[in-house]
Simulated scan of single mutants.
Amino acid sequence: MHALGVALGRELRAGDLLLLTGPLGAGKTTLTRGIGEGLGVRGPVQSPTFVLARTHPSLVGGAPLVHLDAYRLAGPEELDDLDIDFAGSVVVAEWGAGVVETPESWLEIVIERPRGGGEPGTGASPADPASADPEPDWSEAPVEPRLVTLSGYGPRWAEGVLP
């Protein structure tokens, strides 16, 4: 997720809006950390859950990153109170679909993660749950796969999202 974010961040510019959707723990904030690294912004990039939005200024003369958690917003009208510079920033909105008004162009990123040890979105469980170690060594836990769907809308993304 982080590496994908870095690659995305290198392609983004002021005025870009990314709407992230996925369950808790899917990697939305990890993706955004990578985007921040790719943009060259001041960090650390952390979840904006309790502050709704965090602005990370550029360290390289580019656009700042605004990381928004739209989960607790009732609708677009509540964004006015946050005074977000959508035109002059790269805005990454977690849980933003249906809440953040979309401009002429935007990216929608949907992240799915496995549930119960199966493939993303299947809900399948491990073949033999009784064989699971009761006290797993999390330092050696495998990285769970993610299914990430990037959809670009509007003229900005007409040629695709990543080169």
Rank of each mutant, 00 (worst) to 15 (best):
M1T: 02
H2T: 01
L4S: 03
G5N: 06
V6W: 03
A7E: 07
E11Y: 09
R13L: 00
G15M: 03
L19P: 00
L19A: 05
L19S: 04
L19M: 07
G25R: 08
G25N: 10
A26N: 01
T29K: 00
T29W: 00
T30E: 13
T30G: 08
L31E: 03
I35T: 06
I35E: 05
G36L: 01
E37L: 02
E37S: 05
G38Q: 07
G40V: 01
V41I: 07
G43A: 01
P44C: 06
Q46W: 11
Q46Y: 14
T49M: 02
F50R: 10
F50Y: 11
F50L: 08
A53H: 04
R54N: 13
T55L: 03
H56E: 10
P57D: 11
L59P: 11
V60H: 13
L65R: 01
L65Y: 14
R72Q: 15
R72C: 15
R72L: 15
L73D: 13
L73N: 10
A74Q: 15
A74D: 14
G75I: 04
G75Q: 14
P76F: 11
P76S: 15
L79I: 04
D80R: 07
D81G: 09
D83I: 03
I84L: 14
G88P: 02
S89Q: 09
V92I: 09
V92H: 01
V92Y: 01
E94Q: 13
G96D: 11
A97I: 06
A97K: 13
A97C: 07
G98K: 07
G98V: 05
E101F: 06
T102K: 06
T102Q: 11
S105A: 04
S105N: 04
S105E: 08
L107H: 00
E108A: 07
E108C: 01
E108D: 08
I109G: 00
V110Y: 04
V110D: 06
V110P: 00
V110S: 13
I111W: 00
E112T: 00
R113D: 09
R115F: 14
R115C: 03
E119M: 07
G121E: 07
T122C: 08
A124T: 00
A124K: 13
A127K: 09
A127Y: 13
A130M: 15
D133A: 11
D133P: 12
P134L: 13
P134N: 15
P134E: 15
E135G: 13
D137P: 12
D137K: 11
D137A: 14
P142N: 10
V143I: 14
E144K: 10
P145A: 14
P145T: 08
L147H: 10
V148P: 05
S151P: 00
G152Q: 05
G152C: 11
G152W: 02
P155W: 07
W157I: 03
A158C: 10
V161D: 02
V161I: 09
L162N: 04
P163I: 02
P163K: 05
